[in-house]
């Protein structure tokens, strides 16, 4: 196998060499993620943001339970993962013991706003100075595409086979807007990766979120809409169109809170 041909380019692409465990990306990425999955891009954006801010030596990360947790192997930070949804609790303890650390979690939508909703609200209430990156693919991807709190109205999943019916199953949870209502929050935004422009904007959101933590201002949060082609029963290209046409009308993109100090 010619690893050299498959590996990341050795050019000075910011973020890539220093904070990526390159062997993992070249050897395991393809086993871990489905074709068209955008979760690895979130990992890349995190690495780039941290590198550009020059805070990599202070960083430590916590993974939730789900596909996003495979990023544990791909980023060159010490990492842990505990119970489903417990990442904000784990990160809380780490940040309190190491206040100079850059402590962040990567969580899925189910991990963050379903089973881990109490942990999220707890961290928000306490204004923990951590960063939470929530990867929102509108369903439980790892377990085979069941309905999540973020499943949009009418979306077919394996546990909403007729499409999510708001009379029975309610409406999608809007995490970034919810987070922005808490006073202890410095930053909350929602981005997507389905176009180059949005990819760049999302990188700016993630960078700002880490910057707020480096400045010691409140909790920062970025929700990223990502494609889940196999569970959506679409091709990767169709998935990107679905995000544009169906997901984003329900999940508006942008910054919902951005403050440099909390009164």
């Amino acid at each position: 196998m010619n690893k050299k041909a498959e590996g990341p380019k050795k050019e000075k692409v910011v973020g890539t060499p220093a904070l990526f465990v390159t062997e993992w990306w070249t050897q395991f990425l393809w086993d871990m993620y489905c074709p068209g999955c955008q979760t690895p891009l979130v990992g890349r954006l995190i690495a780039e943001a941290i590198e550009e801010l020059g805070i990599g030596d202070r960083a430590i990360m916590v993974m939730g339970n789900g596909c996003h947790a495979y990023l544990a192997g791909g980023l060159d930070f010490d990492v842990t993962s505990g119970g489903h949804g417990r990442a904000p609790d784990i990160a809380t303890a780490m940040k309190r013991v190491m206040p100079d650390g850059i402590v962040f979690t990567v969580q899925g939508d189910g991990d963050c706003v379903a089973i881990g909703a109490d942990a999220l609200i707890g961290a928000l209430s306490r204004g923990e100075k951590i960063t939470i990156i929530m990867v929102n693919n509108t369903n439980y991807g790892t377990t085979g595409g069941q309905m999540a709190p973020t499943t949009i109205v009418g979306q077919v999943t394996t546990t909403s086979p007729q499409g999510r019916n708001p009379d029975v199953e309610g409406y999608p949870t809007h995490a970034a807007e919810l987070v922005a209502t808490f006073r202890g929050v410095s930053y909350s935004a929602r981005g997507s990766l389905h176009t180059t422009a949005n990819y760049r904007r999302t990188k700016k959101y993630i960078t700002t979120a880490f910057q707020r933590q480096a400045e010691g201002v409140g909790l920062s949060f970025v929700e990223v809409i990502t494609a889940c082609p196999p569970n959506w029963h679409m091709t990767p290209i169709e998935s990107l169109a679905w995000i544009e046409e169906k997901a984003i009308p329900d999940f508006p993109l942008g910054e919902f809170k951005n403050v440099t100090h909390i009164e």
Binding site: T80, G82, R86, D89, I90, T92, A93, D118, A119, I121
Partner: peptide, 23 residues
């Protein structure tokens, strides 16, 4: 460090985080 958590699922999660960094 003293933290009052949101529940016992929270306290045990925090315990996990603190133990993981060796304190």
């Amino acid at each position: 460090v003293f933290v009052q958590a949101q529940s016992e699922t929270g306290t045990i999660g925090m315990l996990y985080g603190a133990a993981a960094i060796g304190v």
